[in-house]
Computed example of a mutant assay.
Amino acid sequence: MKISALLRQHWAALRALLLLTVLLGVIYPLVIWAIAQIPGLKHHADGLIVEVDGQAVGSSLIGQLFTDANGNPLPEYFQSRPSAAGDGYDPLATSASNLGPEDIVDTADRTSLLTLVCSRSLEVAEFNGLPASAGGRPFCTNDGVGAVLSVIGPRDAGGNVVDPTKVISVNQLCDTTTTPFLDTYEGVRVECNDGQDYSMGQIVPIEGAAVDPQVPADAVTASGSGLDPHISPAYAELQVERVAEARGMSPAEVQQIVDAHTSGRVLGFMGEPTVNVLAVNLALDERNG
Rank of each mutant, 00 (worst) to 15 (best):
L113P: 00
F66S: 00
V145D: 01
V50T: 12
N70S: 10
G264T: 05
P101H: 10
V190W: 00
L149E: 00
A283R: 08
L227Q: 00
A108D: 11
G135I: 02
R265V: 04
H43M: 08
S80R: 06
S250P: 08
S250H: 10
A260K: 14
N142D: 14
T67I: 09
A69Y: 12
T184A: 09
E253I: 13
G271Q: 10
P180N: 05
I35R: 09
M270V: 15
V215Q: 02
G268R: 05
L122C: 05
Y185T: 02
Q9W: 14
L227I: 01
E102M: 13
D163P: 02
G88P: 04
A252L: 09
L65D: 15
G144H: 04
S95M: 12
E253G: 07
T184K: 09
H10F: 13
E237V: 14
L41T: 11
Y89I: 00
D103A: 01
H261D: 03
P101R: 10
E76V: 07
A36H: 15
G144V: 01
L113F: 00
D228C: 03
T221Q: 10
H43E: 14
C140H: 04
G264I: 05
T178N: 00
R110H: 14
T177E: 10
S83E: 04
T111I: 03
W11R: 15
W33I: 08
T165C: 07
I3E: 13
F139V: 08
A13K: 11
Q79C: 06
I49F: 05
A12P: 06
T94Y: 15
G208E: 01
R247G: 04
A96Y: 09
N160A: 12
V50M: 12
